[in-house]
Design a protein around this nucleic acid. Structure first.
Lengths: 204, 204
DNA sequence: TCGTCAAGTCAGCATCCGCTTACATGTCGA
DNA sequence: TCGACATGTAAGCGGATGCTGACTTGACGA
Protein backbone atom coordinates (compact mmCIF):
# COMPACT_ATOMS: atom_id res chain seq x y z
CA UNK A 1 0.00 0.00 0.00
CA UNK A 2 1.33 3.35 -0.95
CA UNK A 3 -0.92 5.30 1.29
CA UNK A 4 -0.02 8.29 3.37
CA UNK A 5 1.28 9.98 0.27
CA UNK A 6 0.01 13.37 1.23
CA UNK A 7 1.67 13.41 4.60
CA UNK A 8 3.73 16.42 5.37
CA UNK A 9 6.62 13.98 5.39
CA UNK A 10 6.86 13.97 1.63
CA UNK A 11 10.49 13.01 1.40
CA UNK A 12 10.78 14.48 -2.09
CA UNK A 13 12.73 12.92 -4.90
CA UNK A 14 9.89 10.52 -5.68
CA UNK A 15 8.01 11.60 -8.78
CA UNK A 16 5.33 8.90 -8.70
CA UNK A 17 4.66 9.46 -5.04
CA UNK A 18 4.41 13.19 -5.59
CA UNK A 19 1.99 12.69 -8.45
CA UNK A 20 -0.20 10.47 -6.30
CA UNK A 21 -0.12 12.96 -3.47
CA UNK A 22 -1.09 15.76 -5.84
CA UNK A 23 -4.03 13.80 -7.21
CA UNK A 24 -5.18 12.99 -3.72
CA UNK A 25 -5.02 16.57 -2.52
CA UNK A 26 -6.57 17.85 -5.73
CA UNK A 27 -9.44 15.42 -5.51
CA UNK A 28 -10.28 16.50 -2.04
CA UNK A 29 -10.24 20.18 -2.99
CA UNK A 30 -12.17 19.73 -6.22
CA UNK A 31 -14.79 17.64 -4.47
CA UNK A 32 -15.40 19.93 -1.54
CA UNK A 33 -14.91 23.35 -3.10
CA UNK A 34 -15.52 22.87 -6.81
CA UNK A 35 -13.24 23.24 -9.77
CA UNK A 36 -13.04 26.98 -10.20
CA UNK A 37 -12.76 27.73 -6.52
CA UNK A 38 -9.78 25.43 -6.20
CA UNK A 39 -6.41 26.95 -7.05
CA UNK A 40 -3.32 25.04 -8.07
CA UNK A 41 -1.32 26.94 -5.45
CA UNK A 42 -3.63 25.57 -2.75
CA UNK A 43 -3.15 22.02 -3.98
CA UNK A 44 0.60 22.40 -4.16
CA UNK A 45 0.65 23.87 -0.69
CA UNK A 46 -1.43 20.97 0.65
CA UNK A 47 1.21 18.57 -0.57
CA UNK A 48 4.05 20.86 0.38
CA UNK A 49 5.47 21.12 -3.09
CA UNK A 50 6.14 23.83 -5.63
CA UNK A 51 3.28 24.89 -7.91
CA UNK A 52 5.27 24.33 -11.07
CA UNK A 53 5.25 20.59 -10.49
CA UNK A 54 1.56 20.48 -11.29
CA UNK A 55 2.25 21.81 -14.74
CA UNK A 56 5.29 19.57 -15.14
CA UNK A 57 3.41 16.40 -14.25
CA UNK A 58 -0.12 17.17 -15.44
CA UNK A 59 0.46 19.89 -18.03
CA UNK A 60 -2.40 22.04 -16.76
CA UNK A 61 -5.06 22.37 -14.10
CA UNK A 62 -7.44 20.69 -16.50
CA UNK A 63 -4.98 17.82 -16.84
CA UNK A 64 -4.85 17.39 -13.08
CA UNK A 65 -8.63 17.38 -12.90
CA UNK A 66 -8.75 14.79 -15.64
CA UNK A 67 -6.24 12.66 -13.74
CA UNK A 68 -8.51 12.89 -10.70
CA UNK A 69 -11.49 11.77 -12.77
CA UNK A 70 -9.55 8.90 -14.30
CA UNK A 71 -8.31 7.68 -10.95
CA UNK A 72 -11.80 7.90 -9.49
CA UNK A 73 -13.18 6.10 -12.49
CA UNK A 74 -10.59 3.34 -12.10
CA UNK A 75 -11.23 2.86 -8.41
CA UNK A 76 -14.93 2.78 -9.02
CA UNK A 77 -14.56 0.18 -11.75
CA UNK A 78 -12.32 -1.95 -9.56
CA UNK A 79 -14.75 -1.89 -6.68
CA UNK A 80 -17.83 -2.64 -8.73
CA UNK A 81 -15.95 -5.47 -10.38
CA UNK A 82 -16.36 -7.31 -7.15
CA UNK A 83 -18.87 -9.93 -8.27
CA UNK A 84 -22.24 -8.57 -9.26
CA UNK A 85 -24.44 -9.12 -6.26
CA UNK A 86 -28.07 -8.94 -5.37
CA UNK A 87 -29.86 -5.59 -5.50
CA UNK A 88 -29.99 -5.56 -1.73
CA UNK A 89 -26.24 -5.88 -1.50
CA UNK A 90 -25.75 -3.20 -4.12
CA UNK A 91 -27.97 -0.84 -2.19
CA UNK A 92 -26.11 -1.58 0.99
CA UNK A 93 -22.75 -0.91 -0.58
CA UNK A 94 -24.02 2.31 -2.16
CA UNK A 95 -25.23 3.58 1.19
CA UNK A 96 -22.09 2.66 3.06
CA UNK A 97 -19.92 4.25 0.40
CA UNK A 98 -21.75 7.53 0.40
CA UNK A 99 -22.32 7.97 4.10
CA UNK A 100 -18.96 7.03 5.49
CA UNK A 101 -15.62 8.50 4.53
CA UNK A 102 -16.25 11.97 5.94
CA UNK A 103 -12.84 13.11 4.77
CA UNK A 104 -14.07 12.92 1.21
CA UNK A 105 -11.75 10.20 0.03
CA UNK A 106 -14.37 7.75 -1.08
CA UNK A 107 -14.40 7.58 -4.88
CA UNK A 108 -18.17 7.41 -5.06
CA UNK A 109 -18.46 10.46 -2.92
CA UNK A 110 -15.91 12.24 -5.03
CA UNK A 111 -17.60 11.30 -8.24
CA UNK A 112 -20.91 12.54 -6.99
CA UNK A 113 -19.42 15.75 -5.76
CA UNK A 114 -17.59 16.67 -8.90
CA UNK A 115 -19.25 19.63 -10.46
CA UNK A 116 -18.76 20.83 -13.98
CA UNK A 117 -15.23 21.97 -14.64
CA UNK A 118 -15.75 24.07 -17.73
CA UNK A 119 -13.18 21.91 -19.46
CA UNK A 120 -14.78 19.96 -22.28
CA UNK A 121 -12.63 16.86 -21.97
CA UNK A 122 -12.89 16.50 -18.22
CA UNK A 123 -16.63 17.02 -18.40
CA UNK A 124 -16.91 14.25 -20.95
CA UNK A 125 -15.01 11.88 -18.68
CA UNK A 126 -17.27 12.76 -15.80
CA UNK A 127 -20.38 12.20 -17.85
CA UNK A 128 -19.12 8.91 -19.20
CA UNK A 129 -18.13 7.67 -15.76
CA UNK A 130 -21.53 8.49 -14.35
CA UNK A 131 -23.29 6.79 -17.24
CA UNK A 132 -21.08 3.75 -16.91
CA UNK A 133 -21.88 3.66 -13.22
CA UNK A 134 -25.57 3.85 -14.03
CA UNK A 135 -25.36 0.82 -16.28
CA UNK A 136 -23.42 -1.08 -13.61
CA UNK A 137 -26.09 -0.28 -11.09
CA UNK A 138 -28.90 -1.30 -13.42
CA UNK A 139 -26.96 -4.43 -14.37
CA UNK A 140 -26.59 -5.44 -10.74
CA UNK A 141 -30.36 -5.52 -10.58
CA UNK A 142 -30.29 -8.28 -13.17
CA UNK A 143 -31.00 -6.37 -16.38
CA UNK A 144 -29.26 -6.98 -19.64
CA UNK A 145 -27.81 -3.82 -21.18
CA UNK A 146 -29.26 -4.58 -24.61
CA UNK A 147 -32.84 -5.24 -23.61
CA UNK A 148 -34.83 -2.23 -24.85
CA UNK A 149 -37.07 -2.66 -21.84
CA UNK A 150 -34.05 -1.74 -19.72
CA UNK A 151 -34.39 1.95 -20.52
CA UNK A 152 -36.78 2.75 -17.66
CA UNK A 153 -34.52 0.77 -15.34
CA UNK A 154 -31.57 2.91 -16.34
CA UNK A 155 -33.62 5.93 -15.43
CA UNK A 156 -34.49 4.47 -12.06
CA UNK A 157 -30.89 3.57 -11.36
CA UNK A 158 -29.91 7.12 -12.17
CA UNK A 159 -32.57 8.43 -9.85
CA UNK A 160 -30.99 6.31 -7.13
CA UNK A 161 -27.63 7.86 -7.90
CA UNK A 162 -29.23 11.28 -7.86
CA UNK A 163 -30.62 10.57 -4.43
CA UNK A 164 -27.22 9.67 -3.06
CA UNK A 165 -25.71 12.69 -4.78
CA UNK A 166 -28.22 14.97 -3.15
CA UNK A 167 -27.66 13.47 0.27
CA UNK A 168 -23.90 13.79 0.01
CA UNK A 169 -24.17 17.38 -1.14
CA UNK A 170 -26.52 18.37 1.64
CA UNK A 171 -24.26 16.72 4.17
CA UNK A 172 -20.88 17.95 3.04
CA UNK A 173 -21.22 21.03 0.90
CA UNK A 174 -24.37 22.69 2.12
CA UNK A 175 -24.07 21.41 5.71
CA UNK A 176 -27.84 21.56 6.22
CA UNK A 177 -29.29 20.28 9.45
CA UNK A 178 -30.38 17.80 10.55
CA UNK A 179 -29.07 15.64 7.73
CA UNK A 180 -25.55 17.01 8.00
CA UNK A 181 -25.00 15.75 11.53
CA UNK A 182 -27.15 12.66 11.31
CA UNK A 183 -25.35 9.38 11.77
CA UNK A 184 -25.03 6.86 8.98
CA UNK A 185 -27.32 4.55 10.93
CA UNK A 186 -30.11 7.10 11.15
CA UNK A 187 -29.97 7.71 7.40
CA UNK A 188 -29.51 4.12 6.29
CA UNK A 189 -33.03 3.04 7.14
CA UNK A 190 -35.05 5.52 5.08
CA UNK A 191 -32.45 5.45 2.31
CA UNK A 192 -32.72 1.69 2.06
CA UNK A 193 -36.46 1.97 1.62
CA UNK A 194 -36.23 4.66 -1.01
CA UNK A 195 -33.50 2.91 -2.98
CA UNK A 196 -35.33 -0.37 -2.85
CA UNK A 197 -38.27 1.24 -4.59
CA UNK A 198 -35.95 2.39 -7.35
CA UNK A 199 -33.63 -0.58 -7.72
CA UNK A 200 -35.32 -3.66 -6.34
CA UNK A 201 -38.77 -3.52 -7.84
CA UNK A 202 -40.61 -6.26 -9.69
CA UNK A 203 -39.84 -5.11 -13.24
CA UNK A 204 -42.90 -2.93 -13.37
CA UNK B 1 -46.47 41.63 -13.57
CA UNK B 2 -43.06 43.09 -14.04
CA UNK B 3 -41.63 40.23 -15.99
CA UNK B 4 -39.42 40.44 -19.01
CA UNK B 5 -36.99 42.51 -17.04
CA UNK B 6 -33.96 40.95 -18.58
CA UNK B 7 -34.99 41.64 -22.15
CA UNK B 8 -32.45 43.34 -24.30
CA UNK B 9 -34.98 46.16 -24.38
CA UNK B 10 -33.91 47.43 -20.98
CA UNK B 11 -34.97 50.99 -21.51
CA UNK B 12 -32.60 52.21 -18.81
CA UNK B 13 -33.40 54.88 -16.26
CA UNK B 14 -35.29 52.38 -14.10
CA UNK B 15 -33.24 51.43 -11.06
CA UNK B 16 -35.66 48.89 -9.64
CA UNK B 17 -36.14 47.21 -12.98
CA UNK B 18 -32.40 47.06 -13.50
CA UNK B 19 -31.88 45.53 -10.08
CA UNK B 20 -34.48 42.86 -10.79
CA UNK B 21 -32.92 42.11 -14.16
CA UNK B 22 -29.49 41.80 -12.56
CA UNK B 23 -30.75 39.39 -9.92
CA UNK B 24 -32.47 37.30 -12.58
CA UNK B 25 -29.41 37.07 -14.77
CA UNK B 26 -27.14 36.48 -11.79
CA UNK B 27 -29.32 33.69 -10.46
CA UNK B 28 -29.23 31.92 -13.78
CA UNK B 29 -25.44 32.17 -13.96
CA UNK B 30 -24.81 31.28 -10.32
CA UNK B 31 -27.13 28.28 -10.50
CA UNK B 32 -25.75 26.81 -13.71
CA UNK B 33 -22.08 27.67 -13.50
CA UNK B 34 -21.40 28.16 -9.82
CA UNK B 35 -20.31 31.16 -7.84
CA UNK B 36 -16.65 31.38 -8.65
CA UNK B 37 -17.04 30.64 -12.33
CA UNK B 38 -19.52 33.46 -12.72
CA UNK B 39 -18.09 36.92 -13.34
CA UNK B 40 -19.80 40.19 -12.68
CA UNK B 41 -18.93 41.33 -16.18
CA UNK B 42 -20.85 38.40 -17.61
CA UNK B 43 -23.90 39.23 -15.54
CA UNK B 44 -23.76 42.89 -16.50
CA UNK B 45 -23.38 41.94 -20.16
CA UNK B 46 -26.37 39.59 -19.93
CA UNK B 47 -28.49 42.50 -18.80
CA UNK B 48 -26.80 44.94 -21.14
CA UNK B 49 -25.64 47.26 -18.43
CA UNK B 50 -22.36 48.54 -17.10
CA UNK B 51 -20.49 46.43 -14.55
CA UNK B 52 -20.20 49.23 -12.05
CA UNK B 53 -23.94 49.13 -11.45
CA UNK B 54 -23.57 45.81 -9.67
CA UNK B 55 -21.36 47.42 -7.09
CA UNK B 56 -23.56 50.46 -6.87
CA UNK B 57 -26.73 48.45 -6.24
CA UNK B 58 -25.40 45.37 -4.43
CA UNK B 59 -22.09 46.62 -3.04
CA UNK B 60 -20.22 43.48 -4.05
CA UNK B 61 -20.48 40.17 -5.87
CA UNK B 62 -21.25 38.59 -2.50
CA UNK B 63 -24.06 41.08 -2.05
CA UNK B 64 -25.54 40.16 -5.41
CA UNK B 65 -25.36 36.46 -4.54
CA UNK B 66 -27.05 37.17 -1.24
CA UNK B 67 -29.79 39.06 -3.07
CA UNK B 68 -30.29 36.02 -5.29
CA UNK B 69 -30.55 33.75 -2.26
CA UNK B 70 -33.01 36.08 -0.56
CA UNK B 71 -35.19 36.29 -3.64
CA UNK B 72 -35.41 32.53 -4.09
CA UNK B 73 -35.97 32.17 -0.39
CA UNK B 74 -38.88 34.60 -0.62
CA UNK B 75 -40.39 33.01 -3.68
CA UNK B 76 -40.06 29.56 -2.19
CA UNK B 77 -41.71 30.69 1.02
CA UNK B 78 -44.53 32.37 -0.88
CA UNK B 79 -45.27 29.26 -2.87
CA UNK B 80 -45.22 26.89 0.05
CA UNK B 81 -47.49 29.26 1.93
CA UNK B 82 -50.25 28.08 -0.36
CA UNK B 83 -52.36 26.13 2.13
CA UNK B 84 -50.73 23.03 3.50
CA UNK B 85 -52.11 20.13 1.53
CA UNK B 86 -52.00 16.38 1.62
CA UNK B 87 -48.66 14.59 1.26
CA UNK B 88 -49.67 13.44 -2.21
CA UNK B 89 -50.25 17.01 -3.30
CA UNK B 90 -46.99 18.14 -1.78
CA UNK B 91 -45.12 15.43 -3.64
CA UNK B 92 -46.80 16.39 -6.87
CA UNK B 93 -45.91 20.04 -6.46
CA UNK B 94 -42.32 19.18 -5.62
CA UNK B 95 -41.96 17.09 -8.75
CA UNK B 96 -43.53 19.67 -11.03
CA UNK B 97 -41.38 22.36 -9.49
CA UNK B 98 -38.15 20.46 -10.08
CA UNK B 99 -38.87 19.05 -13.52
CA UNK B 100 -40.29 22.15 -15.12
CA UNK B 101 -39.07 23.35 -18.47
CA UNK B 102 -35.29 23.71 -18.53
CA UNK B 103 -35.47 27.36 -19.46
CA UNK B 104 -37.83 27.92 -16.58
CA UNK B 105 -36.50 29.40 -13.38
CA UNK B 106 -37.90 26.78 -11.06
CA UNK B 107 -35.16 24.15 -11.28
CA UNK B 108 -32.56 26.87 -11.18
CA UNK B 109 -33.89 28.05 -7.85
CA UNK B 110 -33.34 24.63 -6.37
CA UNK B 111 -29.95 24.32 -7.95
CA UNK B 112 -28.93 27.64 -6.52
CA UNK B 113 -29.56 26.26 -3.07
CA UNK B 114 -26.64 23.92 -3.54
CA UNK B 115 -24.12 26.56 -4.49
CA UNK B 116 -21.83 27.84 -1.81
CA UNK B 117 -20.31 31.26 -2.25
CA UNK B 118 -17.73 31.31 0.48
CA UNK B 119 -19.50 34.33 1.88
CA UNK B 120 -20.62 33.58 5.40
CA UNK B 121 -23.84 35.54 5.32
CA UNK B 122 -25.09 34.21 1.99
CA UNK B 123 -24.29 30.67 3.03
CA UNK B 124 -26.25 31.11 6.23
CA UNK B 125 -29.27 32.26 4.25
CA UNK B 126 -28.97 29.20 2.05
CA UNK B 127 -28.81 26.86 5.01
CA UNK B 128 -31.71 28.54 6.71
CA UNK B 129 -33.85 28.41 3.58
CA UNK B 130 -33.23 24.72 3.12
CA UNK B 131 -34.00 23.97 6.75
CA UNK B 132 -37.16 26.04 6.63
CA UNK B 133 -38.16 24.20 3.48
CA UNK B 134 -37.56 20.90 5.26
CA UNK B 135 -39.87 21.81 8.11
CA UNK B 136 -42.54 22.94 5.66
CA UNK B 137 -42.33 19.63 3.88
CA UNK B 138 -42.47 17.62 7.08
CA UNK B 139 -45.31 19.80 8.32
CA UNK B 140 -47.33 19.11 5.18
CA UNK B 141 -47.21 15.46 6.13
CA UNK B 142 -49.10 16.29 9.26
CA UNK B 143 -46.35 16.49 11.86
CA UNK B 144 -46.14 19.09 14.53
CA UNK B 145 -42.77 20.83 14.66
CA UNK B 146 -42.47 20.43 18.41
CA UNK B 147 -43.13 16.74 18.68
CA UNK B 148 -39.77 15.10 19.48
CA UNK B 149 -40.89 12.11 17.44
CA UNK B 150 -40.80 14.43 14.42
CA UNK B 151 -37.02 14.29 14.20
CA UNK B 152 -36.84 11.20 11.96
CA UNK B 153 -39.54 12.73 9.77
CA UNK B 154 -37.44 15.82 9.30
CA UNK B 155 -34.63 13.57 8.15
CA UNK B 156 -36.90 11.82 5.70
CA UNK B 157 -38.23 15.09 4.35
CA UNK B 158 -34.68 16.24 3.83
CA UNK B 159 -33.87 13.03 2.01
CA UNK B 160 -36.77 13.80 -0.30
CA UNK B 161 -35.37 17.26 -0.93
CA UNK B 162 -31.96 15.73 -1.51
CA UNK B 163 -33.44 13.44 -4.12
CA UNK B 164 -34.97 16.30 -6.03
CA UNK B 165 -31.78 18.34 -5.77
CA UNK B 166 -29.79 15.43 -7.12
CA UNK B 167 -32.15 14.95 -10.03
CA UNK B 168 -32.04 18.62 -10.94
CA UNK B 169 -28.26 18.54 -10.68
CA UNK B 170 -27.87 15.54 -12.97
CA UNK B 171 -30.31 17.00 -15.48
CA UNK B 172 -29.14 20.57 -15.72
CA UNK B 173 -25.59 20.86 -14.50
CA UNK B 174 -24.04 17.50 -15.21
CA UNK B 175 -26.22 16.68 -18.24
CA UNK B 176 -25.92 12.94 -17.67
CA UNK B 177 -27.91 10.66 -19.92
CA UNK B 178 -30.51 9.31 -19.95
CA UNK B 179 -31.93 11.38 -17.11
CA UNK B 180 -30.93 14.66 -18.73
CA UNK B 181 -33.13 14.22 -21.77
CA UNK B 182 -35.89 12.24 -20.12
CA UNK B 183 -39.29 13.86 -20.12
CA UNK B 184 -40.97 14.98 -16.95
CA UNK B 185 -43.58 12.26 -17.46
CA UNK B 186 -40.98 9.50 -17.60
CA UNK B 187 -39.41 10.69 -14.36
CA UNK B 188 -42.56 11.52 -12.48
CA UNK B 189 -43.60 7.90 -11.99
CA UNK B 190 -40.53 6.51 -10.24
CA UNK B 191 -40.02 9.77 -8.37
CA UNK B 192 -43.55 9.65 -7.01
CA UNK B 193 -42.92 6.16 -5.68
CA UNK B 194 -39.63 7.07 -4.06
CA UNK B 195 -40.95 10.26 -2.49
CA UNK B 196 -44.03 8.51 -1.20
CA UNK B 197 -41.81 6.14 0.74
CA UNK B 198 -40.10 9.12 2.34
CA UNK B 199 -43.03 11.47 2.92
CA UNK B 200 -46.22 9.48 2.99
CA UNK B 201 -45.43 6.60 5.28
CA UNK B 202 -47.39 5.46 8.31
CA UNK B 203 -45.33 7.13 11.02
CA UNK B 204 -43.01 4.19 11.29
C1' DT C 1 -34.44 77.42 -19.83
C1' DC C 2 -31.72 75.70 -16.55
C1' DG C 3 -30.14 73.63 -12.20
C1' DT C 4 -30.25 69.28 -9.70
C1' DC C 5 -29.90 64.75 -8.87
C1' DA C 6 -30.48 59.98 -9.86
C1' DA C 7 -29.11 56.48 -13.45
C1' DG C 8 -25.60 54.85 -16.01
C1' DT C 9 -20.70 54.86 -18.16
C1' DC C 10 -15.60 54.88 -18.50
C1' DA C 11 -10.99 54.02 -17.50
C1' DG C 12 -7.99 52.11 -14.47
C1' DC C 13 -6.01 50.05 -10.10
C1' DA C 14 -4.77 46.04 -7.13
C1' DT C 15 -4.90 41.41 -6.82
C1' DC C 16 -5.09 36.75 -7.99
C1' DC C 17 -4.50 32.81 -11.05
C1' DG C 18 -2.56 29.65 -14.37
C1' DC C 19 1.50 28.87 -16.54
C1' DT C 20 6.49 29.29 -18.18
C1' DT C 21 11.31 29.88 -18.03
C1' DA C 22 15.58 29.67 -15.96
C1' DC C 23 17.90 27.88 -12.15
C1' DA C 24 19.20 24.76 -7.92
C1' DT C 25 19.84 20.22 -5.91
C1' DG C 26 19.91 15.48 -4.97
C1' DT C 27 21.08 10.61 -6.97
C1' DC C 28 23.58 7.34 -9.39
C1' DG C 29 26.54 5.11 -12.72
C1' DA C 30 31.29 5.24 -14.78
C1' DT D 1 35.12 12.11 -8.24
C1' DC D 2 32.28 13.93 -11.41
C1' DG D 3 29.16 14.50 -15.08
C1' DA D 4 24.34 13.64 -16.46
C1' DC D 5 19.86 13.45 -15.59
C1' DA D 6 15.66 13.56 -12.97
C1' DT D 7 13.35 16.06 -9.17
C1' DG D 8 12.17 20.21 -7.29
C1' DT D 9 12.39 25.58 -6.70
C1' DA D 10 12.24 30.79 -7.50
C1' DA D 11 10.60 34.48 -9.87
C1' DG D 12 7.79 36.60 -12.84
C1' DC D 13 4.64 37.38 -17.08
C1' DG D 14 0.13 37.99 -19.23
C1' DG D 15 -4.41 38.05 -18.52
C1' DA D 16 -8.70 38.00 -15.99
C1' DT D 17 -11.43 39.65 -12.04
C1' DG D 18 -13.54 42.49 -8.44
C1' DC D 19 -13.96 46.96 -7.34
C1' DT D 20 -13.39 52.24 -7.28
C1' DG D 21 -13.73 57.15 -8.30
C1' DA D 22 -14.50 60.58 -11.60
C1' DC D 23 -17.32 61.56 -15.32
C1' DT D 24 -21.61 61.82 -18.59
C1' DT D 25 -26.44 61.58 -19.70
C1' DG D 26 -31.13 62.05 -19.21
C1' DA D 27 -35.54 63.31 -16.59
C1' DC D 28 -38.03 66.62 -14.07
C1' DG D 29 -39.55 70.64 -11.44
C1' DA D 30 -39.25 75.76 -10.84
Amino acid sequence: MTDADDEIVRSGRDAEGTKRALVRAARRRFATEGYRATTVRQIAADVGVNVALINRYFVSKDGLFEACMLRTSDELATRSQARASTPAEVIERLIVHALNAPNGDDPLQLLLLLRSSGDENADRIRRRTLEHFTRKLAGASGWSPDDPATQPVLLKAQLAIATMLGVVMLRTSAAVEPVASATAEELAGPLREALRVLLDDQRS
